[in-house]
Nucleic acid binder design. Structure first.
Length: 860
RNA sequence: GCCAUCAUGGCGGAAUUGGUAGACGCGCUGGACUCAAAAUCCAGUUCCCUUUAAAGGAGUGUCGGUUCGAGUCCGACUGAUGGUACCA
């Protein structure tokens, strides 16, 4: 007989929903905890067994904290803009809003069927105009801000305008300089162009990853995801919206140090940001005045720089190319232009063309040839390198292929077969002003840097791999970017009071046929006329990427219905920051960096009070199929949560997913394992409830046996400690031990067994509520119960088992009263016959006694 | 290649500060109940030798080190997983 989970689970789910059992409100008298799950993309496929893993973990913690009297915020919502819904619309012509609503209903049903204690009054949906109004609002804040390097902080653009009007660009880092007078004399359009160089959201004409089949561009970090699915991505220069995420590189690194995040995630972000220290060095052209600046992390090898390589896109390529080489260079540039960065990387075989030009190596004063090659990327450093083939593998390969000179300047394992890239002693590195010879790499670096700086030829520099965030997508199903482009070339943001800028209702969702989004076809929507001036304009047809809505949803949960602000400051002050954030590791460098970025901008502008959004982060490990391989339809090893709940109940699913192993580890599904925890719940049920469904008569008011009572206190403590540390598997195993023992007891103490239901309830809330009711409580557990205390004095037994080792090997065990002194323990140890057998005839060298634990005798 | 993490029975895993390795669950073996089966309950289950038991030996990827004592600490290696990839 199985316990009636299919009756009691819907019963309590209805009860919690109807009574708003988990609704949270601000209460300054109580400590708060904000526990957040990564909200799902509601796909047509429905919930995957991976979702309940993270969701159950946070649910257990939340239910536990509520029992402890903590005010818990635990919301759920939908990340519902995105490509899959739009692609489905292209195929079926069903509006993505309709499919999105259907998918959300299905996801909500599935999540509610798991008994997760969300506050459903705070549900958010990124496609809801009431939500994306504020996504657009934040976009306008980014557009209206710039990053001030001097104070490492974002500021409103109006402050920049004030500074330009007062002092021009003299105190600013800027490529194009102007005085206050020149600024004030500029036209509106000219002013806008200069300001655009500073804005955190700006338009740029850059080579992007264009996918014809999807009809949109993809961010660099998104390319792999789609090429894996068989799509082709090409490189194409296009006008795109960008976000200046690179401004925050240093702050990401510095603030990351204080976060309680998985090391691997912090490490990934660190690699992604890719900070490196080196020097920028100027090389003088042999003919002409121009200088070419390179970036290197090994300035100490300058004497070994035997040629220079420019990226094919480098702006000085034309200037350095001789007439004789011009045709070859142009052909190479065209070939490089169509290759995606991915293709460039795949083919490690070096290609390149000599430009005919030369620069002077500032250290040796010798002319060296300038080449172009696609192994040098325009997007990193200065787009130009000094090639040191003796000490760089790539330069070495290139030099070998094109027969360029190789000069060793670091003494190491030099050979003709490979470059020596390690540290060593500098050689062949001296001119009339500086000598590095005899110095180790670190000292040589210092010496050459000092010389470069003092002679004005170069300076120390820090570079990052991180690039600005490609923000626009040529899609329909995303937030419209609230900017209008006027016919005179100026642009203006949509007035805040006019937000949300609604998506027009389209009838067809095919790509526009050009590189514009389908929005370009909605002429009534796209074309606007300024009522004041009569000037014609066009709305931005690009939309925001899916990441935009998820950048700030954790803030909206705090105040989901607020129509006047994205979130009230008072409520934010109470709930922020997020105390625990749980979700998949696949978001390590995308969502988790984008939302840190937006949060920091909002922080700089004074809209949020913390500089980081998520204090503590954990990833749930992937759940593999029963065959230990990744779950996939094609392998036929996908487990559907609906089926598991149908057969075993939600409590069993929850319990099993937590019992499988550590939260963060990857682990295979096991149907037998679900049956195992299901048996455990059945055993509990039979212990409390008779065949007739009434409370068992085994429960009495008599005190429990001492040993069993000790186990009870140990269990409470272990479950409490383990939940706090997110070690749910060991908490469950302890409860199993307790129940196994309970079944052997002739009678059971009623209040102890009632308390056990409390500690079980975070894990298996439905069965716990039902037992709580059967135990005669007038109110539901979720409303009236609190966590139960344990007695620390009851944790340890009066008798302890002492292990006796001889030379580190266990030879005997005996039981002794707790805290027996060392001398007595030694005496007892020697009294053991097997200890005698192993020590007789030997000299005792040493005796180690650890109280209440062991005696180790060292004998020779 | 580089960076990070990890490696324990037939399987998932436990061992919180170095102190009884294998908790708990699965599987398997035997037994009880039953006409029989399912369900349930009881006992056993790291490997080897003896085998009734006691006792003994080996054992946490490999090799070495520190220590009275190492799954745990240190060094080298091997393998797996994830990330990244011409970033100068």
């Amino acid at each position: 007989m199985q316990y009636p989970f299919s009756d009691i689970e819907p019963k309590w789910q209805r009860y919690w929903l109807e009574h708003g059992s988990f609704a949270a409100s601000e209460d300054p008298s109580k400590p708060k905890m904000y526990v957040l799950d990564m909200f799902p993309y509601p796909s047509g496929a429905g919930l995957h067994v991976g979702h309940p893993e993270g969701y159950t973990a946070t649910d257990i913690l939340c239910r536990f904290q509520r029992l402890k009297g903590v005010n818990v915020l635990h919301p759920m919502g939908w990340d519902a803009f995105g490509l899959p819904a739009e692609r489905y619309a292209m195929q079926t012509n069903i509006h993505p809003q309709i499919t999105t609503e259907q998918n959300i209903s299905n996801f909500r049903r599935q999540i509610q069927m798991l008994g997760l204690s969300y506050d459903w009054t705070r549900e958010v949906n990124t496609t809801d105009p009431g939500y994306y109004k504020w996504t657009q609002w934040i976009f306008l804040k980014m557009y209206g801000s710039w990053y001030d390097d001097r104070i490492q902080k974002a500021r409103p653009v109006c402050e920049l305008e004030a500074e330009l009007a007062a002092t021009g660009t003299q105190h600013l880092t800027c490529e194009e300089h102007c005085t206050a007078g020149q600024w004030n004399a500029k036209t509106t359009l000219e002013k806008q162009k200069l300001l655009d160089r500073f804005r955190l959201a700006f338009i740029s004409e850059i080579p992007v990853n264009w996918c014809e089949a999807l009809g949109t561009v993809l961010a660099n970090e998104e390319v792999a995801e789609w090429t894996d699915k068989g799509y082709t991505v090409e490189r194409k220069p296009m006008r795109q919206w960008m976000m200046r995420i690179t401004a925050y590189s240093d702050r990401f690194l510095k603030d990351g140090e204080s976060l309680d995040w998985p090391v691997s995630t912090l490490e990934q972000q660190k690699n992604w940001i890719g900070r490196s220290e080196g020097a920028e060095i100027d090389f003088q052209m042999q003919n002409g005045d121009a200088q070419i600046r390179v970036y290197t992390t090994r300035p100490d090898t300058l004497f070994g720089a035997t040629y220079m390589v420019l990226s094919p896109e480098h702006p000085l390529v034309d200037a350095v190319t001789t007439d004789a080489q011009r045709t070859a260079v142009s052909i190479y540039q065209m070939q490089a232009a169509v290759k995606s960065e991915l293709e460039r990387g795949v083919d490690k075989d070096k290609t390149g063309v000599f430009t005919g030009g030369f620069v002077i190596n500032p250290a040796t004063q010798k002319p060296i040839p300038i080449w172009i090659a696609d192994y040098v990327l325009m997007g990193y450093g200065t787009g130009a390198i000094m090639a040191v083939p003796a000490h760089d593998e790539r330069d070495f390969d290139f030099a070998k292929k094109f027969d360029l000179p190789i000069v060793y300047v670091v003494d190491g394992a030099s050979s003709d077969a490979a470059a020596f890239t390690g540290d060593g002693v500098a050689v062949n590195s001296a001119n009339g002003e500086v000598s590095l010879n005899g110095l180790n790499t670190a000292d040589a670096m210092k010496a050459i840097s000092a010389w470069l700086e003092q002679s004005g030829r170069g300076a120390k520099a820090v570079k990052f791999k991180l690039r600005d965030w490609l923000f626009s997508r040529q899609r329909y199903w995303g937030e419209p970017i609230p900017i209008i482009q006027w016919e005179d070339g100026t642009k203006s943001p949509v007035d805040e009071r006019e937000l949300p800028l609604l998506l027009p209702d389209l009838k067809k969702f095919q790509p526009s046929g050009t590189t514009e989004s389908p929005l370009a076809l909605a002429e009534d929507w796209v074309n606007v006329v300024d009522p004041a001036t009569g000037m014609k304009g066009r709305r931005e047809t690009n939309t925001m990427p899916q990441w935009a809505g998820s950048c700030w949803y954790y803030l909206r949960y705090i105040d989901p219905a607020n129509d006047a602000e994205f979130c009230s400051k008072e409520k934010m002050a109470y709930w922020m920051p997020v105390d625990l954030y749980v979700g998949g590791a696949e978001h390590a460098v995308l969502h988790l960096m984008y939302s840190r970025f937006w949060h920091k901008v909002l922080f700089d502008l004074g809209f949020v009070s913390t500089n980081e959004p998520f204090i503590k982060l954990r990833h749930q490990g992937m759940i593999l199929g029963e065959d230990s391989r990744k779950m996939s339809k094609s392998r036929g090893n996908v487990i559907n949560p609906d089926d598991v709940v149908e057969e075993f109940g939600a409590d069993s699913l929850r319990l099993f997913e937590m019992f499988m192993g550590p939260l963060e580890e990857m682990k295979p599904w096991s149907t037998k394992g679900v049956e195992g925890v299901h048996r455990f719940l059945n055993r509990i049920w039979r212990l409390y409830v008779t065949e007739e469904g009434t409370l068992t008569s085994v429960f009495t008011d008599a005190p429990a046996a001492a040993e069993f009572e000790r186990l009870y206190h140990q269990t409470v403590k272990k479950v409490e400690d383990d939940i706090a540390a997110l070690r749910f598997n060991t908490a469950i195993s302890q409860m199993m031990i307790f129940i196994n023992e309970a079944m052997k007891q002739p009678s059971l103490n009623r209040s102890m067994m009632k308390n056990f239901v409390v500690i079980l309830s975070p894990f298996a809330p439905h069965i716990a509520e039902e037992l709580w009711e059967k135990l005669g409580s007038a109110t539901a557990m979720s409303e009236s119960a609190s966590w139960v205390p344990y007695d620390p004095s009851m944790l340890v037994s009066d008798e302890v088992m002492i292990v006796v080792q001889v030379n580190g090997k266990i030879r005997a065990k005996f039981s002794a009263p707790k805290d027996t002194d060392d001398a007595e323990l030694k005496k007892c140890a020697y009294a053991e016959p097997n200890v005698k057998a192993h020590t007789d005839g030997k000299t005792i060298v040493k005796e180690i006694v650890i109280r209440n634990k062991l005696v180790n005798i060292v004998a020779q």
